[in-house]
């Protein structure tokens, strides 16, 4: 008897337990009411049956470990709910994504760990473009690849891999080899303003990057901000530090929704 048949035999709920209409989630948090003794909750929208293990009758609860083990032994992955969701999104992305040309381009020319960070960053970008929350994905990339991975993720989201590094490589392999490291390690072409960055730090970060990039003949720098707070931070910094920003020719691209900004600064 399969794991699912065993489970169906054990539990007695008022829904039809047959594939593909149902998935089962073992969960203690769906029912936080102390007064309720419900062991099951069927979510009609997601078609998921949530089972509260502590509220199951003892004769059913004692069989859960064996059913779980059998589920795995039958070749299934037992996954935490959000992990299952992320894995499904990754499979879907692999099937649909149009980023393969970018990956194929960079695979032979960047270190393997940068390539893996880029792959993760492209998925993050695809999720970001669907307006999904990507803060967890961003943290995962930073934890795995450190500041370098974080830079790759920021640069990738802003389009630098295909819009700057690809043409750079195509025009001069030598120049690419010289500045790739500076770009992914120090992010010399862009400042990504984040929540924790104070407005005073923006001119400092620009100055720091320009000192390096000027050596390579790069005469521009971009400031990126996502979220209304960061956009406002950048705008007020430009107004307050007028003297500093007057050194540059400025182009400001701001989304009508005021939650995204790119400022291009070109050395006069």
């Amino acid at each position: 008897m399969s794991w699912f048949d065993k489970l169906k035999k054990l539990i007695d709920v008022d829904i039809k337990l047959s594939a593909p209409i149902i998935n089962i989630n073992i969960n203690k948090s769906f029912n936080k009411s102390k007064d309720s003794d419900d062991a099951y909750f069927y979510d009609k929208e997601t078609k998921i049956l949530h089972i509260h293990p502590d509220k199951l009758p003892e004769e059913i609860r004692k069989d859960l470990p064996n059913i779980t083990k059998q589920y795995i032994a039958e070749g299934n992955r037992l996954l935490e709910y959000k992990t299952a969701d992320l894995l499904e999104k990754l499979y879907q992305y692999n099937k649909d994504n149009d980023d393969s040309a970018i990956l194929e381009f960079f695979r032979p020319i960047i270190p393997p760990s940068d390539y893996e960070a880029l792959e993760a960053a492209l998925f993050l970008r695809a999720e970001f473009r669907k307006s999904n929350d990507v803060s967890g994905l961003k943290d995962d990339i930073r934890k795995r690849f450190g500041d370098r991975g974080n830079n790759i993720s920021n640069l990738c989201t802003a389009g630098y891999f295909e819009e700057f590094l690809m043409p750079l490589f195509n025009s001069s392999r030598e120049m690419f080899d010289r500045i790739y490291e500076e770009i992914v390690m120090r992010s010399i072409v862009a400042v990504f303003v984040n929540r924790g960055m104070k407005p005073d730090a923006i001119p400092y970060e620009i100055q720091r990057r320009l000192e390096i990039s000027k050596k390579y003949g790069i005469k521009f720098i971009h400031i990126h901000g996502i979220s209304r707070a960061n956009v406002e931070k950048i705008i007020s910094c430009i107004q307050e530090q007028k003297k500093f920003f007057d050194f540059f020719e400025k182009k400001i691209y701001e989304a009508p929704t005021r939650d995204l900004i790119v400022v291009e600064l070109i050395l006069k």
Binding site: W3, F4, N23, I24, S29, N76, L78, E80, K82, A84
Partner: peptide, 8 residues
């Protein structure tokens, strides 16, 4: 196929 998942 039906799937078994678990919550945190």
């Amino acid at each position: 196929e039906p799937h078994l998942t678990f919550d945190k």
